[in-house]
Simulated assay, not measured.
Amino acid sequence: MPMLPDLRKRAVATRERMDDPDCDPVLLARTFEQFTGVNRLVAGWRGTYRERIRPLLSAETLSTLLDVGCGGGDIARALARWAKNDGLLLEVTGIDPDPRAIQAANSAPNPDGVRFHTLASSALVDAALRFDFVISNHVLHHLTADQLTDLLVDCELLCRGLSIHSDIRRSRLAYLEYWWATLVLFRGSFVREDGLTSIRRSYTEAELRVAARREWNVEAQAPFRNLLTFAASAAAKEGEPGAQGTLEA
């Protein structure tokens, strides 16, 4: 049995190794590659797409989706693929301020034409772009309190429809199950070490309710996830003429 760290409070002073700009580039590249398998196992986006995104898509009218902090781009590519397989029109853009992440995203097969850019969400706010969906996966726990607030404000400004942020929900059982599951899997990368750190840094449902802005809704998602959502107002959905745009490739 592993020796459990203190999980009563967020380990905000602990950092994931992949966030170090000087971390081993080989291990980092392998980490981005392995995220596809990790997210397939734990992130739950297939169900989130089916229940929350797909019902709002159309086979006649194009919708746009922005993945903030997209990392290696596996979630963005999966959403584009699922929509295409369902015969629905969805244009997906992924952004990340870390050029190493965008390099990994652009190096992976991308048959559905997802666009990836080295940008922060604030740059898109400055460009007055709008998207029907704004999402993130495993981003919230990386942020300071001020950065979290800034991100949510940006998403409110960028979103014409629905914003969904999916992240880990901290618990003893989540830590134990991940510890055991990664004893053999995902070797030669930061996935095991950083995953355990991420659980320690993540929010409980109650903590995220306190940290989030008032307009946002927090709900627990099985088995160990928080879902933070925001629905744009009718006025925001109408927007200004020409306000919705796409980034150049």
Results as ranks from 00 to 15, higher is better:
residue 221 Q to K: 15
residue 206 A to E: 15
residue 77 R to V: 08
residue 195 G to K: 12
residue 68 V to D: 05
residue 2 P to K: 12
residue 136 S to H: 01
residue 187 R to D: 11
residue 129 L to W: 03
residue 209 R to W: 06
residue 42 V to P: 00
residue 189 S to G: 11
residue 62 L to S: 14
residue 9 K to L: 10
residue 135 I to T: 15
residue 153 V to N: 08
residue 68 V to Y: 03
residue 56 L to H: 10
residue 22 D to W: 08
residue 171 S to K: 12
residue 199 I to L: 02
residue 202 S to M: 05
residue 51 E to I: 00
residue 55 P to W: 03
residue 141 H to A: 01
residue 40 R to D: 15
residue 189 S to C: 10
residue 64 T to F: 09
residue 83 A to P: 06
residue 136 S to E: 09
residue 40 R to V: 05
residue 184 V to A: 15
residue 119 L to K: 13
residue 3 M to Y: 04
residue 25 P to I: 03
residue 91 E to S: 13
residue 222 A to C: 01
residue 170 R to F: 05
residue 141 H to P: 00
residue 241 P to H: 07
residue 227 L to G: 02
residue 9 K to C: 13
residue 181 A to S: 07
residue 70 C to S: 13
residue 91 E to W: 13
residue 149 T to Q: 09
residue 34 Q to M: 13
residue 47 G to H: 12
residue 57 L to F: 00
residue 228 L to F: 05
residue 145 A to M: 08
residue 63 S to A: 15
residue 92 V to T: 10
residue 27 L to I: 05
residue 100 R to D: 12
residue 4 L to V: 08
residue 181 A to G: 12
residue 248 E to M: 05
residue 37 G to A: 04
residue 99 P to W: 00
residue 245 G to F: 11
residue 157 L to F: 02
residue 96 D to L: 02
residue 28 L to M: 10
residue 95 I to N: 01
residue 246 T to K: 14
residue 55 P to M: 08
residue 230 F to H: 14
residue 78 A to G: 10
